[in-house]
Nucleic acid binder design. Structure first.
Lengths: 220, 220
DNA sequence: TTAAAAAATAGACAATGTTCAATTTATGCT
DNA sequence: AGCATAAATTGAACATTGTCTATTTTTTAA
């Protein structure tokens, strides 16, 4: 029982439709050339509807980008399912899937970081969850790789690893990396991730790593 | 001898003036709210002049961002001059200076990566140099830290280290890192840089690191 | 059938990037 | 000095955009 105007779509359907069209548009044009008017046009509605349904452009964009986040998580799980069972293989699959999704969904992926969210605007519970789902996947995999470790330490490390891979991926897609004449950013990111994990006792070499002054001072 | 219209400014002065005003504007408004019209207005000229002098908005923005790059390099050198003489101290100074500049010049720094440069548009020789100067500083410092190493290997590693730090800094300033509830992104970036360098024989531990299968396969 | 409520629209507004014909100004020549 | 030329600068036009509000349309409830 709802009191909508059109029988074309229920409120939920309309919401879904608008997000869907917005996502399609941002994927093909990129954030800079995205237009709310055009997105509404494609949905068969007018701009105002977006403001009615989402309350403002920012909230709309958050919804659109959250969809990308969901696709991203699914992509990661998909690739992880195909990955070999050893630690090394799963980590590689994870990093490569990160890059793979970003490459195939260039515009949508970049839009996530192009949209600067004002601290005043609050993000819907479910959209926040979509974002957290992604770090959740990495949390799980890294925890599996590290074995027995302090949970808080893993949390921080995971976020730092994400930032590491993100940096490589981001510079790659913006072309900054090409300017630096690096050919294989994904490979470099993976190499760094391995190195970092090795310093945290994953893949321990035959005789375990002695902890130097550095290792301690930097992490405290 | 030139045939300009106004005696107010020579062509070079005008160029400088426009870049200066543009830089000021982008620093106070950020990339999204930047306006070429407003920049020209502040310089005492009209929009068309920007198109005359720079040929297009993209070229203008490249010039503006290149100024930020120059400030950035200078900032790094400034901080490095104050740094202690040991390897560890200089690396820390470098990473913290990277973050420090980005924090103080939030908008200008982010604008560098917000502006997506079409591959068709070519960047002036001197502007490309401004960008390379930055990686040059890091090249020098890391080379000093690593001592005897293959030059090409250092090149790649440096770019990867920059990407690593960039990732942390970028997620920090966009607020993504806050969403992840990490308090000290700079510290985390520094920790990762130390770990990575340690895997490349900087600060070698008493008994040198045995090279595992991982280290090799990831870097080739 | 009709009144109220909700949804959707159209239109106004200020602003933007981009282009280009018209205008203004300095210069070099006579 | 005066004039023609060439360069620099402008201003206005155009299509678009985000944002807001009064108005219209449609649905539901009475």
């Amino acid at each position: 029982m709802f009191m909508g105007r059109r029988s074309d779509h229920t409120p939920d359907e309309l919401r879904e439709l608008l997000i869907s069209c917005g996502h399609e548009l941002i994927a093909e044009r990129g954030f800079a050339k995205f237009s709310a008017r055009e997105a509404a046009r494609r949905a068969g509605y007018s701009v105002g509807t977006i403001y009615n349904v989402f309350g403002g452009l920012d909230s709309y964009l958050i919804a659109v980008n959250s969809r990308t986040f969901r696709h991203w998580s699914e992509w990661l799980e998909m690739e992880l399912a195909k990955a070999p069972d050893d630690t090394e293989g799963r980590i590689e699959a994870l990093v490569r899937a990160y890059f793979g999704f970003a490459e195939v969904n260039r515009n949508a992926w970049m839009a996530i970081y192009d949209h600067r969210i004002d601290r005043s605007i609050e993000i819907a519970r479910e959209d926040e969850a979509a974002r957290e789902a992604l770090t959740g996947v990495v949390d799980r995999e890294v925890a599996a790789a590290l074995g027995a470790h302090d949970e808080q330490e893993i949390r921080r490390l995971v976020r730092s690893l994400i930032a590491t891979v993100h940096g490589h991926c981001s510079l790659w897609l913006t072309g900054s990396y090409a300017l630096m004449r690096e050919e294989d950013p994904a490979g470099q990111a993976l190499a760094r991730v391995y190195e970092i994990l090795r310093c945290h006792d994953v893949f321990p070499p035959p005789d375990s790593l002695p902890s130097t002054q550095l290792q301690k001072s930097a992490n405290e």
